[in-house]
Design a protein around this nucleic acid. Sequence first.
DNA 1: CATGAATGAGATTTCATTCAT
DNA 2: AATGAATGAAATCTCATTCAT
Lengths: 190, 190, 190, 190
Amino acid sequence: MKRKDDRKVGQIFQAALKLVVSKGLSGITMGDISKAAGIATGTLYVYFKSKDELINALFAACRENSVAHSFKGYDPAQPYKVGFKHVWLNILRYRLHNFEEAVFMEQCYHSPFITPETREKASRLAAPYNELLERGKKEQLLKPVDTGLLITFLVGSMNELVKQTHYHGTTLTRTRINTTFDMCWDALKS
Amino acid sequence: MKRKDDRKVGQIFQAALKLVVSKGLSGITMGDISKAAGIATGTLYVYFKSKDELINALFAACRENSVAHSFKGYDPAQPYKVGFKHVWLNILRYRLHNFEEAVFMEQCYHSPFITPETREKASRLAAPYNELLERGKKEQLLKPVDTGLLITFLVGSMNELVKQTHYHGTTLTRTRINTTFDMCWDALKS
Amino acid sequence: MKRKDDRKVGQIFQAALKLVVSKGLSGITMGDISKAAGIATGTLYVYFKSKDELINALFAACRENSVAHSFKGYDPAQPYKVGFKHVWLNILRYRLHNFEEAVFMEQCYHSPFITPETREKASRLAAPYNELLERGKKEQLLKPVDTGLLITFLVGSMNELVKQTHYHGTTLTRTRINTTFDMCWDALKS
Amino acid sequence: MKRKDDRKVGQIFQAALKLVVSKGLSGITMGDISKAAGIATGTLYVYFKSKDELINALFAACRENSVAHSFKGYDPAQPYKVGFKHVWLNILRYRLHNFEEAVFMEQCYHSPFITPETREKASRLAAPYNELLERGKKEQLLKPVDTGLLITFLVGSMNELVKQTHYHGTTLTRTRINTTFDMCWDALKS
DNA sequence: CATGAATGAGATTTCATTCAT
DNA sequence: AATGAATGAAATCTCATTCAT
């Protein structure tokens, strides 16, 4: 992706995300995206040389954004559970406020659009999460099981919670958030 | 005359599911499906009057299948946790053995294919799960929180576990299964 | 066309005619025809070996019917104008009561369905009309112009009259009929 | 950017008309039209969003053209019969030179293509003809009968004449034209 | 004979991409 | 760089015809 006008790339990404939520990854066309972004179809090709590249770039951008936000304000000096909850809340908030990204990522998971390279690049970004959970196990606060399994639980429950919240219009009160966190913690704690 | 062959619908469904896993929902065409099902493209239209209808029918069938399997062998007379684990294992096994269906369902969720009617029909099938969790709350074995939240944990963690297992080729040993069940139970138990 | 069941051929013809009026010659399919005739699609091919043959057979049948009715009750011994009006009325009545046939014939005129053979067979049936007009010229009652031109006038005005009557729901009173006949006669009379 | 070329619509219309004459309305395909117009099939959809819309637009255009030509050079100040013959000749000439349009219109009449809106729009354009005949009745030159009936004769005889001329290769000599006009006038005059 | 499911060629339509302006 | 008309390959869908029952 070239660097002609970064605002335009943002418009394109926003347009694509909105469309994926409403029409699904399989339903969006370059025409739709350009229209929603307020530019001409041909202009898309100034920024991305194909639909594939556009989707991959968006996937990578979402992933980076998401990880970056997760650890904002995380202070390793704090007690483990405090830091863990901080990250957990970061993730929750990020996904709720950027629901479109979450949907897009899920749709991408089984699509032929995402290349192995992009996929691998994404999984490399998971390192900080691994470290966080390893630390918990080292401090004997988390169950001494495979880290992958712990992440699975963390991610899976979070994903579903965000979807539920979004679709059923449940407002996430402080109490509900705490309840949910407690459930997650109960699952992971040793 | 040639009689409409009921097995043919099954072949079509199998073909479509296989293709969604390998090429994504956006990648499958009626031509691909018919070829994979070993019939002529036109024949698809004998059974479904459009691609839309085919996808909706498959979606509904998957959902029904899945629910039906979940409660196979479930005996309400047994102690709660025993029955709960039985259902949990049913779901896990079903999803692992029918991974294609899970992928398909996920891809469908945000697609323009699934009509509101299909969606509603699907959600009506969730009733048995609700009842199972309500019973747990009544027996004071599960946390006295919103049933939706309990299901969220159940489903979310399971989904992610299945995906992980499938993609990372982890073999689900008896131990690993029990560990995972314990995490789930810990999250839900009061 | 074979002779399996003449009533069935009639049903097929009726169905085809009805459909041509409502959907046009270009809009009818063998499926439509069979459904409207209350038989299976395959059965059509017992009676006609192709769609082309069906259309041609129907065309020929309509044409024969129409000519046969035109001269019913015509008595050459009567004075010319009386006989002429008799035929004119026959044609008018026939077309009004068999409007579907008229529409079908018109649609066929410029269609590639009708083969040259069918077309020629049809024009051979025009002989009686020619004779009728020749006689009028011989008796010096009609204008001494090309017979084709006279027929053109006769047919053209009749066609349009029938369409008008049918579509605008005008009821053809005896007076209106007489007025119309007079106009036609005025055009042709010497 | 490439500018939409207004002549392209004309090319498309010409191509469609030519094809309807040679293959009938049921025989033309979007592929044929585009090929005959010298453009890619997809380009047709830049100008018309479906085959239906193309046919309707062509129908409307033909109708407008035809009416516009009919009154070219008509001067209400001239004696009635002179003006009437002028219009009559205009129509005749137009139909002979634009035979394809006439065929197309006829085929369209009973086709599922033409929408009620298009049909109504077309009939509204008949007003000038009505006025012309009303004037003739007011001047007591035409029979005091329903205007619709007068138009019926005018149009019906003309249509058939044009068809005859076209198909039987009769050359329309000045004499033949005058003869025909006289027949028409005799039919209508009081 | 009658049936209607099955076929596949061909029709309509879509859409990623290119290109002239 | 930006535009959107033009393209044509590929997708969806239709339908005359065949064929197994």
